[in-house]
Design a protein around this nucleic acid. Structure first.
Lengths: 78, 78
DNA sequence: GAGATGCTAATCATAGTATGTAGATTCATG
DNA sequence: CATGAATCTACATACTATGATTAGCATCTC
């Protein structure tokens, strides 16, 4: 799943948002992973734009960050 | 992937939005599928909440409907 | 009959999950 | 200063569960 960002803008936006909100809340990848019920390395892969995440995991991560899911798909400069 | 909606609210919201926006634009499932570059039955499966769609296909369908992707994840009564 | 949708099943590609290693950073503590 | 422990992250695989895609037939409405 290399170069996914070239094909899909959303993957990139999602990655940036997850990392941004996570750091904003002072969470490590591992802490966020535990809250969301996913594996430690999975969060890293998402932030590196290596995975084509599904809507179910978008929801889990949004909840773990205390956000509405659509916020993770919204470009911050809009 | 039955009873997906019980575990994931977003699947249900996404399904309702796709159907709602599609009908609003007077498109058949087949017409939307062609625009989005997916198969006819796949749109049907999404609208019936049978699939855990990936972010890449969310983007394709959003583009086909002339929408921003986040709009498909946003509950209409907010 | 024609068009649209539901539904099943089957195959192929890949998302989800996990393990292990390595490098970078921070922070004590001698 | 060292240097050693602890934490965080990147990265390389690998397995298996399931998402993506297609074909075929049924149902329903007009």
């Amino acid at each position: 799943m290399k170069n996914l960002s070239q094909k899909c803008i959303l993957v990139s936006i999602f990655a940036q948002n997850v990392k941004s909100y996570r750091l904003q809340q002072g969470l490590s990848q591992e802490q966020l992973a535990e809250r969301a019920g996913v594996h430690r390395t999975y969060i890293g892969m998402l932030e590196r734009e290596e995975k084509n995440v599904t809507i179910y995991n978008i929801e889990r991560i949004a909840i773990a960050l205390g956000l509405e899911a659509y916020q993770l798909l919204k470009s911050k400069n809009d």
